[in-house]
């Protein structure tokens, strides 16, 4: 079937959706060929639509005015939702190292978030 050029409706142009994926560790590389870094499976997810955010980006959004607004309809729960407004405290302060000898819980508080596995 031939299509007359004037019959073709103009469709709005759209950018090809893309996003930046920052690898911080070799283990983030996909183990299957059908997967891209960032985990989108093209064989099963049309257009690669999984919405992925890294920690740094999420923490950045935290500083936006919208994210600091108190939520509506927060139920009153003693010791949970009645705490003083903590929006001014940025991120969680690093806990102090105190070795009280609990086994299986030896996590170094001062280590960087991500380390390269080389």
């Amino acid at each position: 079937m031939s299509v007359n050029a004037t019959d073709v409706k103009a469709s709005g142009s759209r950018e090809i959706p893309s996003r930046r994926v920052l690898l911080k560790d070799a283990s983030q590389l996909p183990s299957e060929y059908s997967t891209t870094p960032g985990g989108t499976m093209f064989s099963t997810t049309p257009g690669g639509t999984r919405i992925i955010y890294d920690r740094d980006f999420l923490l950045q959004v935290r500083e936006s005015p919208l994210a600091r607004t108190p939520p509506k309809n927060l139920p009153k729960i003693e010791g949970v939702t009645d705490v003083a407004d903590s929006t001014t405290n940025g991120s969680i302060e690093q806990p102090k190292q105190n070795n009280n000898g609990k086994e299986g819980a030896i996590i170094e508080a001062e280590e960087p978030q991500f380390e390269m596995d080389i």
């Binding site: 955010y53 994210a67 927060l74 939702t81 407004d85």
Partner: peptide, 19 residues
């Protein structure tokens, strides 16, 4: 306690709760 669909809504809730 609350529900959310966006990053902003998550922080709104999270920042107003006891840690």
């Amino acid at each position: 306690v609350g529900s959310f669909a966006s990053v902003e809504q998550f922080w709104m809730l999270y920042s107003h709760l006891a840690r």
